[in-house]
Design a protein around this nucleic acid. Structure first.
Length: 432
DNA sequence: TCTGGGGTCCTAGGACCC
DNA sequence: TCTGGGGTCCTAGGACCC
């Protein structure tokens, strides 16, 4: 890409596109499953599930052959096996997924630098400035699909429209392995017959609420007074929908995002909360979170702990500090306090999951004299000083850098075998 | 026989300040 | 001495997305 070209792009970004469709949404089909079928020809044409198993675990992705039986991502393995008796469970090559996803993004960036990657396998492109080079959006979309198929070997669907929201819906409609262009002026015609569930932000709960009012399609939703929609779905979603109905959804394609929070969680099966046990899990989680924060030179002031109880919804407890934290031991202690404040409110309940998240992030370029926490912060200062803790973290980070993650660890954090392969966690936490 | 792990955004009430 | 209105921050919960 030449400098002149990207200048053209950024100046076009300021204006609301008024002519042809300028936003593309590119979305790999059944991504993990497709990669497995690519790597092992014997799996092609077969109903396969990545992750899980007939007796336990959760299906992370299903091939289209499996989807036709009703198998879906997020579904317990035993249920998937019941729906599709011939389902082949595959363990998953998590390291490969990142590589394949990156390779596809490189192809997209050949088209335009204005690419917003929103997950490992999908991205928005603003091609407003690329049409004079590569042709109209439908031609660009077709070319992307050809190149990804030829050079990477994966099926990808593309939607094109005037707005991100619409382009995303178009790519969903295009699946599997298709291209849908919503020509300007035909938006209503395109949207009206589609189910409301295709709209971003309308999940199972809101879909149910709308169905209760006899609203199933986007057309029916468009005919419903805005105030009624807001009443059911909340102000924000209501606004978004009416903006979409007016074809005035102004969201731009943004190339860089910074994470607003960093977290980790661990499913535990069912267990009675015991001091040592809870401490061990939290220490492990805090270690993961704090290490990632330090690696990004960030730290956060708000610590949130989530405890999920058997049969009950989960409960969160959070605390906002005066100083940001990125220290493993300090984070562990705060998390322990918060976790017990939640657990103590539900005596006799078994717990099934623990999670830690740090938000309110700030940059930590300049190392501040650490956290000797002021009195209002309600936990006891640990035995080591902040400076000492920072030094310990620093040495651990360095050793792990050289010898690998498991070379060294905080004692309580070291014993564990996860329900999910470690490579999956690494994939999930990978910076896009 | 209840389902992983990573996130984002919204809402509502209360505290606090001006 | 009681009262208004607005803004910001914090906490907890929930829906949703990949």
């Amino acid at each position: 890409m030449t400098a002149g070209y990207s200048n053209t792009c950024s100046s076009r970004l300021a204006a609301v596109p008024s002519g042809g469709p300028t936003i593309l949404h590119a979305d790999l089909d059944a991504f993990y499953a497709s990669v497995e079928q690519l790597l092992d020809p014997a799996l092609r044409g077969q109903p396969i599930a990545v992750g899980g198993g007939p007796s336990g675990g959760v299906v992370l992705a299903a091939s289209y052959e499996a989807k036709s039986f009703g198998v879906q991502g997020g579904m317990p393995g035993w249920r998937a096996a019941r729906l599709c008796p011939d389902l082949v469970f595959v363990r998953g090559h998590f390291g490969e997924y990142q590589r394949f996803g990156d390779a596809v993004m490189e192809i997209l960036e050949d088209v335009t630098p204005v690419v917003e990657r929103i997950s490992i396998d999908e991205a928005f492109l603003d091609v407003s400035g690329a049409t004079h080079l590569f042709g109209p959006p439908d031609v660009i979309g077709a070319a992307i699909r050809r190149r990804v198929r030829a050079e990477v070997g994966l099926p990808i669907s593309v939607g094109a429209a005037r707005t991100k929201h619409l382009a995303k819906i178009a790519s969903q409609v295009a699946k599997p392995d298709g291209l849908v262009v919503v020509a300007p002026g035909t938006e209503r015609e395109f949207l009206d017959p589609l189910p409301v569930g295709l709209i971003w932000g309308v999940g199972p709960v809101n879909q149910q609420r709308l169905a209760h009012l006899g609203i199933h399609t986007i057309g029916q939703l468009a005919e419903t007074p805005g105030s009624a929609v807001e009443h059911i779905l909340g102000r924000a979603v209501g606004h978004k929908l009416s903006a979409m109905a007016r074809d005035a959804d102004p969201r731009r394609v943004v190339t860089a995002h910074r994470a607003g929070s960093v977290g980790a969680q661990s499913a535990l099966g069912r267990r009675r909360p015991a001091r040592d046990d809870v401490r061990a899990v939290l220490a492990h989680l805090a270690d993961r979170v704090a290490r990632r924060l330090r690696a990004k030179a960030r730290a956060g002031r708000t610590v949130t702990v989530r405890v999920r109880f058997a049969g009950m919804a989960s409960v969160t407890r959070s605390l906002t500090l005066t100083q940001p934290v990125a220290t493993t031991l300090t984070l562990t202690e705060i998390a322990e306090r918060l976790a017990w404040s939640a657990i103590d409110d539900h005596p006799d309940a078994e717990i099934t999951l623990l999670a830690i998240s740090v938000s309110n992030l700030t940059d930590q370029r300049t190392i501040q004299p650490e956290l000797e926490l002021p009195p209002p912060d309600p936990w006891r200062p640990g035995s080591a000083t902040g400076t000492a803790r920072r030094a310990v973290d620093g040495s651990m980070d360095a050793i792990r850098e050289r010898f690998g993650r498991d070379a060294v660890g905080y004692l309580p954090a070291m014993r564990r075998g996860g329900a999910v392969p470690d490579e999956f966690r690494e994939l999930a936490e990978h910076e896009l």
